[in-house]
Design a protein around this nucleic acid. Structure first.
Lengths: 117, 117
DNA sequence: TGCATATTTGGTCGTTTTACCATACGTGAA
DNA sequence: TTCACGTATGGTAAAACGACCAAATATGCA
């Protein structure tokens, strides 16, 4: 892996990392419905404003969101909305994992039934 | 946000977080070409085997990869291959960010030219 | 059985992340 | 200008992360 490839993979990982926190992912999903100011985003999160502000700045520095100050408010919006097209596949991973667990449980069930004979 | 929604968003964020590390993202991309054993994956990474193994276990516990032991080797593969369909959009974010930087630079250039008058 | 290979696990340690609090900054209204 | 509101920044402490080394485990072969 040369330096350019390495830099690219680091940049991409950084974006995924920015979305890899519940609060930040939630905020990104909220922004799918259009821009929102910090106060609106904070409304449903149980955390300090400073915490929320820092999360938003992480999303911003990752390039996930864009900022627009208008009057006293600061509005955030998704910079590249396709970022959330990913979610159905992420949910598929969750389902596949849940399915594995079910199968594992069933397997254990069968094993213990056999052992009980 | 109720408990169920919270759990869902945490689970999704956890998957993104798992992919949010250069080494893990790189390994996931390698697996797009089909299953590989640890040694093969390690070949192009400059890190201890134990480090690589731990990264793989994070991917596994996140449900991104599946494991299959065959003989002395342990083979890893993507559990839900669509996970990498996301990359083009991630790259679009990078491009958009790069574009902003260019525009910012151009803007600064213009400003300094004006100021030089 | 004993050994080499392939991978994982446990321990340690420096770094990063995250949350909170206090405080600063910027803006519009009075 | 002063105040209140909305948001950002700095500091700090606890927790999580990531890398390495050493040691453990599992497998196939001599």
């Amino acid at each position: 892996m040369n330096a350019k490839e390495k830099a690219l993979i680091e940049a991409k990982a950084n974006i995924l990392k920015a979305l890899g926190h519940p609060t930040r992912l939630w905020m990104a999903e909220q922004l799918a419905g259009g821009e929102k100011c910090v106060r609106e985003l904070a409304k449903n999160i149980d955390a300090d404003f400073s915490t929320i502000s820092k999360h938003l700045s992480i999303l911003k520095q990752a390039g996930v969101v864009d900022v627009d100050k208008r009057g006293k408010q600061v509005y955030y919006r998704l910079k590249v909305p396709c970022i959330l097209n990913f979610m159905p596949c992420v949910e598929a991973v969750l389902q596949a994992t849940a399915q594995s667990h079910i199968e594992l449980m069933q397997h254990k069930q069968v094993v213990s039934e056999i052992e009980a004979l």
